[in-house]
């Protein structure tokens, strides 16, 4: 059974939004809308692994997207590809049978449920990367209800990973 069947995807998004704020990135990250440009996610990924998500990579993410959903989607596609490549090339694992986030819905409609899936993939990078201890310890300091959702999200990802 899918462990997230009993968890609201929107609740997942809210909890992961709280988690994303622990990275203290430059760009505002208080609301779902703040994240739909992809800029925050790119900055978080660079903190997770600055050697892989280097300046060359992040410079391809446009920062001044305003309300232009086409630019947002373009950014989100690059980020999703970056996450999947990172899993394959650095973490040595593939994510199978996981419904990938619909970046069109995130960019055009600020869909919290799809954004939750995207943040879930970033969470997977954080708890598997070289510096994972730092990120896991930060999660363990968070409110219990958030920790619970984060745990369920990680468990779902782990059930879809294959070496």
């Amino acid at each position: 059974m899918n462990p997230l069947e009993s968890v609201d995807r929107v609740e997942l998004c809210e909890s992961l939004l709280t988690w994303i704020q622990t990275f203290g990135v430059e760009a505002p990250c208080k609301t779902v809308e703040d994240l739909t440009s992809g800029v925050v996610m790119a900055q978080v990924l660079q903190k997770i692994d600055p050697s892989y998500f280097d300046d060359n990579w992040i410079n391809r993410i446009k920062t001044e997207v305003g309300d232009n959903w086409r630019l947002k989607i373009s950014n989100l596609k690059k980020i999703l590809k970056g996450i999947l490549d990172y899993n394959h090339e650095v973490l040595g694992q593939q994510i199978n049978d996981f419904t990938l986030p619909d970046v069109n819905l995130i960019g055009e409609h600020s869909d919290a449920s799809e954004l939750g899936r995207m943040l879930q993939l970033i969470l997977g990078c954080a708890v598997n990367c070289e510096q994972k201890q730092e990120y896991i310890k930060t999660i363990m300091m968070m409110e219990e209800s958030v920790q619970h959702v984060v745990m369920t999200a990680i468990q779902e990802l782990m059930s879809k990973e294959t070496p």
């Binding site: 973490l91 708890v127 896991i136 219990e144 745990m151 990680i154």
Partner: peptide
């Protein structure tokens, strides 16, 4: 108090999970 017991059990589950994650080897060779 059953509520307190439940909270403590939940805390234990979370701590076990994240501690096992901490000790899990990463995908890097070596």
């Amino acid at each position: 108090d059953p509520n307190m017991k439940g909270a403590a059990a939940n805390e234990g589950v979370l701590a076990n999970f994240f501690n096992s994650l901490l000790s899990k080897k990463t995908g890097t060779p070596g």
